[in-house]
Amino acid sequence: MSQIVTHLSEISDRYDALFVDLWGCIHNGLTPFSDAVAAMQAYRAKGGKVIFVTNAPRHRGSVTAQLDKIGVAEDSWDAIATSGDSARFAMFNGAVGSKIYFIGQPHDQTFFDPLDIVENPVTIEKVALEDAEGIVCCGPVDPMADPEVMRPEFLYAKQKGLKLLCANPDIVVDRGETREWCAGALAKLYTEMGGDSRYFGKPHPPIYDLARRRLAALGETIPDDRILCIGDGVLTDVRGAMGEDLDSLFISGGLAAAETKTTHQPDPDLLSGYLEKEMVSPTYTIGFLR
């Protein structure tokens, strides 16, 4: 059974670094969660390192700008690792070819910004589906539309044998009170149709490798048993931590608020049943990050 805690400070002394999810933990896409930001500031004030590890399908500069825009305090974090950067590294190394059919919104175009750390990067050209060698998916064109609207395009792409690079494995996200579809929902559909989807965010290893590199770049050598992963997604944050053999703190008041009846803290019996159903075992659980 996951240990239920009321404040991060109850367990934070056991860890030297935190890998912290953003959406649903630090902010809701519109405004920051003040208690969560304060908890990060307090942790850093004691010498801990905070790496924001996010399935945002954009590079860290774009995410930094978003945090500034919505008002997340700069002194609440040390570095950022994004699934977008992990996926961009793969794309510029030719993982899905050079002629790319792009699925996403206008603000996702920063995905194609140059990436200096790749030697001899592939020259990427965005083309129509019939001319494509591969697909890059940053998210639905319309995040409110059923992913099934992509079935005709995906059937054609599967028949052509195109690989789909998924820059955000999240299935859904809550923007304020509104639930939206993410790139992971499209990649899941493509896989179910027999297509080849490649994932680079949580729970898959590349983003954790990137997070560790971001941590090392701070001049810190921290063993895995001194790193705590924090997030509200059992299929991404918790399962990813389990796969990396890292401890985790599950935020039950995010995506699973209804299933766990979390208002301030989760109902213990409902929490236990939910975790058992999802076949995950976070080290700790808290209603909201504070």
Rank of each mutant, 00 (worst) to 15 (best):
V149H: 13
M40F: 05
Q105V: 05
C137V: 06
H204L: 03
G48Q: 12
G71P: 09
L115Q: 09
A211M: 12
T110L: 06
T54E: 06
N120V: 04
D131W: 00
P266D: 11
S248Q: 12
Q265V: 10
H204A: 02
A257F: 09
Y43H: 03
A241Q: 04
E153A: 13
D35N: 14
T262L: 11
E276D: 13
S86R: 04
K49E: 10
D116W: 12
F33Y: 15
E130R: 05
T110Y: 00
D75M: 02
C229W: 01
T82F: 03
G233V: 09
G48D: 05
R198E: 15
G253T: 12
A90P: 05
D142T: 08
L155C: 02
I230F: 01
A183P: 08
L289T: 01
K188L: 09
P106M: 07
K160G: 14
A241D: 03
E259D: 15
I4V: 15
G287A: 10
S62R: 09
Y101Q: 04
D16G: 06
D13W: 00
Y208I: 01
L210Q: 11
H264V: 14
G201D: 01
P147Q: 05
A17Y: 01
V53L: 15
D16E: 15
I286D: 11
A36N: 08
P203Y: 03
E125N: 12
L129K: 01
D13F: 00
R179C: 03
N55C: 07
A185I: 11
F111K: 11
L235M: 14
L289P: 06
A241S: 11
A17E: 05
W77D: 01
A258M: 13
Y15K: 04
S248D: 13
W23C: 09
L210A: 08
M242L: 11
E153L: 10
I117M: 12
Q66D: 11
L22M: 15
I227P: 06
N168L: 02
D209I: 09
N55L: 08
V173I: 14
E153P: 00
D35G: 09
M91K: 01
I135E: 08
S34I: 03
K163I: 00
I135V: 05
I227G: 06
I26Q: 06
T285N: 05
G243Y: 04
I251H: 08
V127T: 15
A36R: 07
G219E: 11
T82E: 09
G104P: 08
R14A: 12
R175F: 14
L218G: 12
G139H: 05
F89S: 07
M193T: 06
D209G: 07
D196Q: 13
R213P: 02
E125Y: 02
I26R: 01
A87R: 03
R58S: 04
R60T: 13
S272W: 01
